[in-house]
């Protein structure tokens, strides 16, 4: 197996996530797109681990750390979305323009 199809698929997943972040209007959908980007990074780490096969398995270890951080990020992100929804009665990104003038 060559590494190239995996790397191309990871790049595609990353750009699909960027598209989702730019185009979606709902905050929860933007968080879903961030998960896609993190997933692309995970695929890259595991593919390079499978390519190099170093004794420390650093690719897989870092993938596990990224998954943990992603779980923390989703928890905090949804708590912030919940606060915003409670205060502004909407979850649309266009309407959070308090810092814009």
């Amino acid at each position: 197996m060559s590494v190239q199809p995996f790397l191309i698929a990871a790049a595609g997943l990353f750009s699909i996530g960027i598209y989702g972040i730019l185009v979606r209007r709902n905050v929860v959908m933007v968080l879903l797109s961030i998960e896609l980007i993190l997933n692309a990074v995970n695929i890259n780490f595991v593919v390079f681990d499978a390519m190099l096969r170093d004794a420390m398995l650093q690719g897989q270890i870092f993938t596990i750390f990224i998954i943990t951080i992603a779980a923390a990020e989703v928890g905090i992100g949804l708590a912030i979305v919940l606060m915003l929804f409670r205060n502004r009665k909407t979850a649309n990104i266009n309407e959070f323009d308090l810092m814009k003038w």
Binding site: M1, S2, V3, Q4, F6, L7, I8, A11, G12, F14, S15, I16, I18, Y19, L22, V47, A50, M51
Partner: peptide, 20 residues
């Protein structure tokens, strides 16, 4: 997103061609 995909895949294809 398409330009990011183009840049990434260009760099990846030109840098890594080893086998798993």
């Amino acid at each position: 997103s398409l330009s990011i995909f183009g840049i990434f895949s260009y760099v990846m294809l030109n840098t890594f061609d080893s086998q798993i």
